[in-house]
Design a protein around this nucleic acid. Structure first.
Length: 269
DNA sequence: AAATATACCTGACTGC
DNA sequence: TGCAGTCAGGTATATT
């Protein structure tokens, strides 16, 4: 689920907890993608979150001498509760604050992670990441340059975090539709102008989705428990055999790299 | 080096 | 009802 807009929505939802002292940590299930550190409580209890950043799909929270590195995997989300409530199934972690509020991590599939690092920039999970899509570092020149000499499909390349971070299956499909580019084109076949269109499409759709609180398909909720409303603006994702909003033709579905791709054969060449 | 397959998990849904 | 199979927003890791 969570791609860049959903992670950014989560980050913004956590901002009210900045500068609030942590007074307890409850780990009910440490076995996520990687285990939650045994010493998490001693790392954070008595300290405050001083900064909340996002790098790609990772949330970074500065506390004590280092940073929590958090990823929502496929099905994770954080809830911010104003007072204690009994935990539900798959509520794996609580961070309780002195004022009675608590942050609760929920993740049925447990593909997410909660790690701690003194220097997250150098952490193996982050060190090799590509540029942020919503910065000037992600531009037509960059994309065109980095697509040279590779035969992989452009849709797969867009989802490669070493090329650009934050774009997952939903936004790769959506951006390619907006840019009018067929998902099976090789990255190498894109012209500079098509790279320009694609960069713009990625940025426009990510920004719009952030404005809408992200996309909720199944699990995703913001920290206030609300779903994201970008789903109703999806042009092709999960619209197989439905009518293209632009030309009225039939949206097609195919598998690429074992992930579903959706596209309009008339509008995307 | 790059392309492909596998693995980690639960839950919802489909077809027999 | 039950059971097997498929699919789902991610991505590190192992294998060709």
């Amino acid at each position: 689920m969570p791609e860049l807009p959903e992670v950014e929505t989560s980050r913004r939802g956590l901002l009210p907890m900045l500068h609030q002292p942590v007074n307890q940590v409850i780990v009910r299930q440490a076995r996520l993608r990687w285990p939650i550190p045994d010493n998490l409580a001693e790392l954070v209890v008595g300290y405050c979150f001083n900064q909340l950043n996002r790098r790609g799909k990772y949330l970074l929270a500065q506390i004590n001498q280092g940073w929590l590195i958090m990823h929502l995997g496929m099905s994770g989300h954080f809830r911010l509760l104003s007072e204690w409530q009994p935990p539900q199934k798959h509520d794996h972690l609580d961070i309780l604050f002195n004022d009675g509020r608590l942050l609760r991590y929920h993740d049925p599939r447990r593909f997410g992670c909660i790690l701690y690092s003194d220097n997250p920039e150098q952490h193996p999970l982050l060190a090799q990441l590509g540029p942020e899509p919503l910065t000037s570092a992600f531009n037509a020149d960059y994309l065109y340059q980095h697509l040279r000499g590779r035969q992989s499909a452009i849709k797969k390349r867009l989802m490669d975090s070493h090329l650009v971070v934050g774009v997952g299956n939903i936004y790769a499909n959506e951006a390619l539709f907006i840019a009018g580019i067929h998902p099976e084109r090789t990255g190498d076949s894109l012209s500079w102008h098509e790279c320009e269109l694609l960069v713009d499409a990625v940025q426009v759709r990510l920004r719009r989705s952030i404005d809408q609180g992200g996309t909720t398909l199944r699990d995703f909720l913001a920290t206030d428990g609300k779903p994201g409303y970008f789903r109703q603006e999806l042009q092709v994702y999960e619209r197989a055999l439905a009518a293209c909003y632009r030309c009225g033709g039939e949206i097609q579905q195919l598998k690429q790299d074992n992930r579903s791709s959706y596209f309009c054969p008339h509008c995307q060449k």
